[in-house]
């Protein structure tokens, strides 16, 4: 396995929009350089619009960098080889409401080229891991936000990816689900998976991440290692506030 799971080298992403002949550009991320080691849990922190989701989408190839390079386990982002080894939980995952979790996981499992013979067993195991076994055959139109989040997590881990990108993973989950979710992430990490969490929940990042990066105005302004906050609850939040306040007031 390559030592670097995810790498951004001088990545800039600008969005251009034309309206009535006038083009406006918005900066998503600017000169982002970051390397994540295999087996690491990395937290992306930032205020709204700071570039967290843009960073994840660049890694997935849903967005293309205006400048710079993004690679996943040695492959350019967005290529089939890169995508085959990634799992993605979007912020507020949307699913086909007329399908049940088992059906949607069958679809995603097949698209991820999981062998047909092992797919049903794999789906059962994954549904159990996210606590959805009893709702496996219920239409998702009836699901709460938290249940949809669990389905989102299930589809992200179903194909046993090496790198997991999770955008606001605890959003909508109740405290018990958050605790279970944290345990699941720890288990996955113990199996050697690399995890990237984009989150507003600093306490979650503090509890499970090895490093955290703070984005402000599209720039990675600070990378903090766990040693800087461990042993002092609330320390990461202080560091975060101290780092982003000048940008929020600017």
């Amino acid at each position: 396995m390559p030592e670097t799971a995810l790498s951004f080298v001088g990545v800039t992403k600008t969005y251009s929009r034309s309206h009535l002949g006038r083009t406006t550009t918005t900066r998503g991320v600017e000169e982002l350089s970051l390397e994540l080691a295999s087996g690491e849990i990395f937290g992306l922190l930032g205020l709204n619009g700071s570039g967290k989701t843009t960073t994840l989408k660049l890694a997935l190839g849903l967005l293309r960098p205006s400048k710079g390079e993004v690679s996943v386990l040695g492959h350019p982002s967005g290529t089939a080889k890169a995508l085959a080894s990634m799992g993605y939980l979007p912020e507020l995952p949307y699913f086909y409401p007329y399908l049940a979790p088992r059906e949607v996981l069958t679809l995603y499992g097949r698209l991820s080229a999981l062998p047909a013979s092992s797919l049903p067993g794999k789906i059962d195991t994954t549904l159990e891991a996210v606590g959805l076994s009893r709702a496996a055959d219920r239409r998702m139109a009836e699901f709460s936000k938290g249940m949809l989040q669990r389905v989102g997590l299930a589809q992200a881990i179903l194909h046993d990816p090496t790198l997991l990108l999770l955008d606001e993973p605890v959003s909508g989950l109740d405290p018990l689900a958050i605790a279970e979710f944290r345990e699941l992430l720890a288990t996955l990490n113990a199996k050697g998976k690399t995890l990237v969490l984009s989150s507003h929940s600093i306490s979650e990042v503090e509890k499970i991440c090895h490093r955290a990066g703070i984005l402000a105005d599209g720039k990675l302004v600070r990378v903090i290692s766990q040693t800087e906050w461990s042993g002092e609850p609330g320390r990461l939040e202080k560091l975060f506030v101290e780092t982003v306040r000048p940008f929020a007031n600017a």
Partner: peptide
């Protein structure tokens, strides 16, 4: 619009 396309295009599906 519903973003269900994200979960298809983030798999190895050209």
């Amino acid at each position: 619009e519903t973003k269900t396309i994200y979960l298809i295009l983030t798999r190895p599906v050209p």
